[in-house]
Simulated assay, not measured.
Amino acid sequence: MASLPIATEIDPEVMALVDRVAQRRGISSRAYAAEAIRRAAESDDDFDAFVQVGLDAIERGDVISHEEMMAELDQMIAAHRARCA
């Protein structure tokens, strides 16, 4: 896949950190920055998809009340305590 250039400004401390980490990994600072951007974007995309699952469930009405959830948790805690006693 062809690479596309990107330009941005970062403070000297962050650049020094990028340089140190890239050097330890044996790659260029540019390669490290590109990988870091990819990982951050994938993480944000995964989080957005996770949130969307919840929003879709709410839209379908596939939810339970806070009281129901707390009752389920109380039952789980009681069952765990009974096993551990």
Results as ranks from 00 to 15, higher is better:
Val14Tyr: 09
Val51Ala: 05
Asp19Met: 13
Val21Glu: 04
Val14Asp: 08
Met69Glu: 11
Tyr32Asp: 10
Gly54Arg: 01
Ile10Asp: 05
Ile64Cys: 05
Gly54Gln: 00
His66Gly: 03
Met69Thr: 11
Leu73Ile: 13
Ile27Ala: 14
Met1Gly: 02
Val51Thr: 03
Ala82Arg: 04
Ala78Asp: 07
Gly26Tyr: 00
Met69Ala: 15
Ala57Val: 13
Ile6Asp: 02
Ser3Met: 04
Ala85Met: 09
Val51Ser: 02
Phe47Ser: 01
Ala16Ile: 10
Gly61Cys: 03
Ser28Asp: 06
Ala36His: 00
Ala31Phe: 00
Ala82Thr: 14
Asp19Asn: 14
Ala22Met: 13
Asp56Lys: 00
Glu59Pro: 05
Arg20Lys: 15
Ile64Thr: 05
Ile58Gln: 12
Gly54Cys: 05
Val21Ser: 00
Asp74Ile: 06
Met69Trp: 09
Asp62Pro: 09
Gln23Cys: 12
Ala40Met: 08
Ala36Leu: 08
Val21Asn: 12
Val53Gln: 03
Ala33Pro: 03
Ile64Phe: 13
Ala7Lys: 04
Ser3Asn: 04
Ala79Ile: 05
Asp11Leu: 03
Glu9Gln: 13
Ala82Met: 03
Arg38Leu: 02
Ser29His: 00
Ala41Asn: 07
Ala40Ile: 10
Cys84Lys: 11
Val51Lys: 00
Ala57Glu: 12
Val18Asp: 03
Ala34Tyr: 01
Ala49Cys: 11
Ala36Phe: 02
Ile77His: 06
Leu73Gly: 01
Ser65Trp: 02
Glu59Asn: 07
Ala78His: 10
Arg83Leu: 13
Phe50Arg: 06
Asp48Leu: 13
Asp74Ala: 08
Met15Gln: 07
Glu42Ala: 08
Pro12Lys: 07
Asp56Met: 03
Asp19Lys: 04
Val53Thr: 13
Gln23Leu: 13
Ile58Ala: 11
Ala36Val: 10
Ala49Val: 12
Ile64Tyr: 04
Phe50Glu: 08
Val21Arg: 15
Asp11Lys: 07
Asp56Ser: 04
Ala49Asp: 13
Leu55Thr: 09
Asp56Asn: 02
Ala49His: 07
Cys84Tyr: 06
Cys84Pro: 01
Arg30Glu: 14
Val14Ser: 09
His66Trp: 07
Asp56Pro: 00
Asp48Asn: 15
Asp19Val: 15
Pro5Tyr: 04
His80Leu: 11
Phe47Trp: 09
Ala78Arg: 11
Gly26Gln: 04
Ile64Lys: 05
Ala85Arg: 06
Arg20His: 07
Arg81Trp: 01
His66Pro: 01
Gln23Lys: 05
Arg30Trp: 03
His80Arg: 12
Ala85Glu: 14
Val51His: 00
Arg30Met: 10
Val53Asn: 01
Glu35Pro: 01
Asp45Arg: 06
Leu55Pro: 01
Val53Cys: 04
Leu4Asp: 11
Arg60Pro: 11
Ser3Asp: 01
Ile58Leu: 15
Glu72Asp: 08
Thr8Lys: 01
Ser29Gln: 02
Ala57Lys: 06
Arg83Thr: 15
Gly61Ser: 12
Ala78Ile: 12
Leu4Trp: 07
Pro5Thr: 10
Met69Arg: 14
Ala7Pro: 00
Ala41Val: 14
Ala71Lys: 04
Leu73Gln: 08
Ala41Glu: 07
Pro12Asp: 08
